[in-house]
């Protein structure tokens, strides 16, 4: 007997009003034979924070990594369906992946600064992509560190190793490093999971500031974080996008029982 997966009622997947930055259509993803994402269709609004929640292994991080094609580095990962960035499919043959990742930056779960100086970390992207050197590069570094709310703490030790910073500072440095490339979208994969509450608070504040200029998609385990920072929330379960709506709607009046159970802490 073939077990039919229930179709997702389309009314549980909202299409946000206004400009759409990223859109996926029937996105499937596999690791070898394991299907990690099942026909995910979602529209991510421009200059807003969209949170993706769900229990461990639900596919939310895999989904995030489809958006800048970081799954490409995993040999057995395979993607079907469409991911549109400003209406253009990033999985089409003529996509320049390097160019794509300049436009769609990523902050990882654990802070991963390069073992170089603070300055060199931030300057890494601009040195790759631009001819900025000297004062011009200094300005980019300062601007990025200011935008990541780290400038005041590190301005006197720019040439010290980034590995000497605290975890929270390292994560803000990683955000500064992404901003220095001037992306349009910033993907954040549980950026606070390795941080203490104070550092988490700072990053959350920062996200709200960044929203003015960037489209942000954040994967989080922490439902309170999703409800605090995001305008839209998607709930993933077993590789499916169960429900996607305005954040208040998801947390106060979800349409699907599974969403309701999850946000009320009944599982996960």
């Amino acid at each position: 007997m073939v077990i039919q997966l229930p179709d997702i009622p389309p009314e549980n997947i909202l299409r946000p009003p206004g400009e759409i930055k990223i859109e996926t259509k029937n996105l499937d993803m596999y690791y070898g034979n394991f299907q990690a994402l099942k026909s995910v269709t979602i529209a991510v609004p421009s200059r807003r924070i969209t949170a993706l929640i769900g229990p461990s292994g639900c596919g939310k991080s895999s989904f995030l990594r489809c958006l800048n094609r970081m799954n490409d580095v995993i040999a057995e990962a395979r993607v079907d369906g469409q991911v549109l960035l400003d209406g253009r499919d990033i999985y089409s043959d003529d996509t320049d992946v390097v160019q794509l990742r300049r436009r769609v930056g990523m902050v990882f779960q654990r802070p991963n600064p390069f073992p170089m100086s603070i300055y060199d970390n931030v300057a890494y992207g601009p040195r790759l992509h631009t001819t900025a050197r000297g004062t011009e590069l200094n300005e980019i570094v300062e601007r990025s560190l200011r935008a990541a709310a780290l400038w005041n703490e590190v301005k006197d030790k720019l040439h010290q190793s980034a590995m000497e910073l605290s975890g929270g500072q390292q994560q803000r440095l990683c955000i500064a490093r992404v901003l220095a490339v001037e992306p349009e979208v910033v993907l954040m994969d549980e950026p606070c999971s390795a941080l203490d509450p104070t550092a988490t608070f700072r990053i959350e504040e920062l996200m709200t500031e960044l929203m003015e200029n960037y489209t942000i998609v954040i994967v989080t385990h922490n439902m309170y974080q999703a409800s605090r920072v995001s305008q839209y929330t998607g709930f993933f379960l077993s590789g499916e996008l169960i429900e996607y709506n305005r954040t208040e709607q998801i947390f106060e009046n979800p349409a699907d029982k599974r969403t309701d159970d999850y946000v009320r802490g009944r599982f996960g």
Partner: peptide, 26 residues
Amino acid sequence: PAPLRHASLALGASQWQTVCRVVLPN
């Protein structure tokens, strides 16, 4: 560590740039 390679690739570095600037020096 793999996260260093991923960080470089995610910043729009090519594989070769990642090898030259991050992997080999380390």
